[in-house]
Structure formats: C-alpha cells, structure tokens
Design a protein around this nucleic acid. Structure first.
Lengths: 153, 153
DNA sequence: TATTGTTATACTCTATAACTATA
DNA sequence: TATAGTTATAGAGTATAACAATA
C-alpha cells in the first residue's frame, strides 16, 4: 500500500515562533501592498516617502541605511518619487557629491493620506489584540532585533 | 540654509506593529538561513523537507499549498531534494498523474539534525522572552493569519 | 585614497501561461 | 474537460563590482 495524506500537518514547523511570524508577515505585507496600491506606492516606496517627510534633508545614503537596502536599489525608488514630484533632490552645497531629499507639499499630502489608510488597515488587522498585548509583542520584537545587532558586534 | 539630518528618525514607521514584525522577521530569516546553510538547505527547502518527513506520501500539489508557493516553483526544490537522495518521488499507482513524496532515511536524519540546530537558534533569539509572552505572541499572530482567511472568503 | 550616487549585472523568490500525461 | 506536474518566462527584490564626480 502506498501511504497517502488526507490533511497535511505542519505541526513541527508551528513549534517555531519564527514560522508564525513569517506567516503573519506574509498576510500583513499582502494587505499593506493592497492598501498602498491605491496611492501607487509599494511598501518600500511608502517607507522611503515617510522617512523623507520625517527627516527633511536626509541624504540618499542615510535613507538606504535606514531602509536596510543597498544604495543602488534606492536609486530607482528615488527616481520615481522625484518624477511624481513627491520629493525634491538637491545638491548639498557644502558637499557636492551628496543629494538632500525633501518632500514637496504634494508628497507630504500623499504621505498623510497613505498613513491614514495604513493605520486603518493595521487597526483592522489588530482589532482583536488589546493594547497591552500589542506593546508586549512590539517589545519582544525589538529584543529580537537588538539580538542580531549584538551578534554582529 | 539647507536642512540636514544628523540622526534619522523612523518614529512614524515604528507606530505600526507591522513594521516591527518586518524588521524582526528580517533578523530571524537571516539567522535561520545562516544556520541552515550548514546543511545546504534554505528556509524553503528545509520547510519542504520537514513537511515531507511529517507527511509521508504527500503530493507535490499538497506540499505547494502547504508552503504557500506556486506549483512551478516547487519543482526545482523537489528536484534538488531528490538528487541529494533526501526524498523519493514515486508515481501514485491509482492516479499516475501524481507523485507521492517520502523522505529517505538520510532525509529524516538530516531533517532531525537541522531541526535541532534551528531549535537552538530559536531558543537563543527568544531566550529573553518568557513562555507566556511567547504563546500570547503566537496566539496574536494566528489571529492575524485567520483574519486574512476570513477576508478572502 | 575614500565617499556619494550611478550603471550594469546577477541571483533569488515569486507568478502566470502553456505544455504533457493522465483522469 | 479537468487535474498533476512540468517548462519557459517575466517580474519583483536584493546584492556586488566598477565607474564618475567630488572630497
């Protein structure tokens, strides 16, 4: 007799918290990109826009570091935001190698609208989870992040 | 005067739990792939091997569904596991379109060794987080996953 | 000599259409 | 006609090397 499976069990993987984090993140990312598509943004271009709004005059290299992506991969993202006139890219007068990034009024407005939509989407996803649980989750996730920084040092 | 940024603030992004989940997941994935590279496995091929060990006789289409990847993308993963003689791929006698996947002894042994290493790696990452907090995190993540399933229905 | 931003390129992951062999 | 697995291919996302301009 050949063995056959009726219902697939992923029990051994469910033992790992990381597995649950991956599955939840897949859901969150799909939802988020769905929300952001209404503004012609993706997760990465939205994050870039938010950081430029929050940090007027940020350099491309600083932005790449903050987004944890390589400098070459940022170029096309910045190109697009600039072409849509959501940001400006000006030479730094005291160091003409660098560009300073700033959001335009249109950029700040789009960022606000997108942030509201993203916030509503988060609230819907997390509505069953009370504030205390959320902050203990965030605290735990921050500890994991910190863990990797201490490994690298 | 041109505005310049000394220290980049990602405060607006940190408001979103999803942002923390993404950052933590990046750390977990990098660490996990590092651990698995010792066994010449990646996250996806390890997950596939675990599910084949746990579900002897699983079909490729069932495995693709469980891994949440498309059938074409599974082929190359299965090819590699078969070439390494970690799994066997046999025709189902009652439906000669389908393949049944089973782990070999070598496959089960590698899976065990890898699972031990992955478990140790998880334990190190989560050591500061007590059992109760872990299970409340897993519970919350499961609710988020369930949320997306109810949206799609 | 080192750094900022850029170009070219490659590798992984993922998604879709179309094919084959079976049902 | 529908399904299981396959092939080919294309699109994201990400990584490295090498370049021009500037420091």
């Amino acid at each position: 007799m050949q063995p056959q499976i009726d219902k697939v069990s992923d029990a051994p993987l469910r033992e790992f918290v990381g597995y649950h984090i991956k599955r939840a993140f897949n859901v969150i990312q799909a939802d988020l990109n769905d929300v952001l598509s209404r503004f012609d943004l993706r997760m990465i271009s939205y994050s870039a826009l938010v950081l430029i709004v929050e940090n007027p005059g940020i350099r491309q290299s600083q932005l790449a570091t903050a987004l944890a992506i390589e400098r070459p991969n940022l170029v096309v993202i910045i190109d697009e935001l600039e072409k849509r006139e959501l940001i400006t890219r000006d030479r730094l007068l005291t160091d003409r190698r660098a560009y300073l990034l700033q959001a335009t009024l249109a950029g700040r407005r789009l960022c606000d609208k997108a942030a509201t939509a993203v916030g509503a989407h988060e609230e819907a996803l997390f509505e069953e989870i009370d504030k205390d649980t959320r902050s203990s989750i965030v605290d735990a996730l921050n500890r994991i992040e910190a863990k990797s920084r201490e490994d690298r040092s």
